[in-house]
Computed example of a mutant assay.
Amino acid sequence: MDSEADEITSLVGREVYSNNGVFVGEVEDVRLDLDAEVVNGLALSELNAQLFADTETGKKGVIIPYRWVRAVGDVVLINDVIERYESPDEDTELAV
């Protein structure tokens, strides 16, 4: 379990980009579902001001669903957040 915890905490501080190369923000924290023992969201701060300019995002940033994550490496790649953000579905959570 310690190696899994190390992997989770290593996400903090990584930059997040859409698969189209648009900077979205920086991972500030990880949202966990302790009962299911899975990551279910990433809390982002240092947001792209242009992307979220017309939105009340909360005091610190946004939470994106972990299911949007496509790849994790030196940066985190997510599905194109701009398209999803402009027409969010019912189970999409963006505000902190």
Score class of each variant (00 low, 15 high):
V69I: 03
K60G: 10
D89S: 11
I63T: 14
I82F: 14
S10P: 01
T57R: 14
V96H: 09
V22C: 08
S45T: 12
D6Y: 11
V39D: 04
I8T: 07
K59W: 13
P88C: 00
E90I: 05
N40Y: 10
L44F: 02
T55E: 08
L47P: 01
E4R: 15
I8K: 01
I63E: 15
L44K: 06
V69P: 04
E83K: 13
S3Q: 11
K59M: 15
D2E: 15
E46P: 00
G25P: 00
R14Q: 02
A49P: 10
L34I: 09
E4M: 15
S87H: 12
T9E: 13
L47Q: 07
D29W: 06
L34Y: 08
L11Y: 03
V62D: 07
D91A: 06
K59S: 12
D74C: 01
S87M: 10
E90R: 07
E46G: 09
N48W: 03
E93F: 04
V38G: 10
S45G: 09
E26T: 13
L42E: 05
V16P: 00
D80N: 07
I78D: 10
V62T: 03
S45K: 12
I78P: 12
N19V: 08
E90S: 14
I78K: 05
E83G: 04
V22D: 10
D54H: 08
D74T: 03
V39H: 05
D91E: 11
I8L: 03
G21S: 00
L77V: 05
D33H: 05
D91F: 04
T57C: 05
G25A: 01
N79G: 08
V75K: 14
G58W: 07
E15K: 14
N79T: 12
I82T: 13
S45Y: 09
T9A: 13
A36R: 15
R84K: 13
V24C: 03
G58C: 06
N79K: 15
G21C: 01
Y66L: 03
L44T: 00
V24G: 00
L51Q: 08
A5R: 15
V96S: 10
S87D: 12
L42M: 02
I82V: 13
L94H: 12
Y66I: 03
T55P: 03
D91W: 04
V81D: 12
V16C: 00
T9G: 07
G58A: 00
A49C: 09
V38H: 11
A43Y: 13
P88R: 04
L34R: 11
V30Y: 04
V12H: 01
V81S: 13
A95W: 15
E37L: 11
L11E: 10
D2R: 07
P65F: 08
N20Y: 00
I64T: 03
V38R: 14
S10T: 00
L51H: 02
V69F: 03
I63K: 15
E15I: 05
V69Y: 00
D80H: 02
V30M: 02
F23S: 05
W68N: 06
N79L: 12
V27K: 04
D54W: 07
G73L: 00
E37N: 14
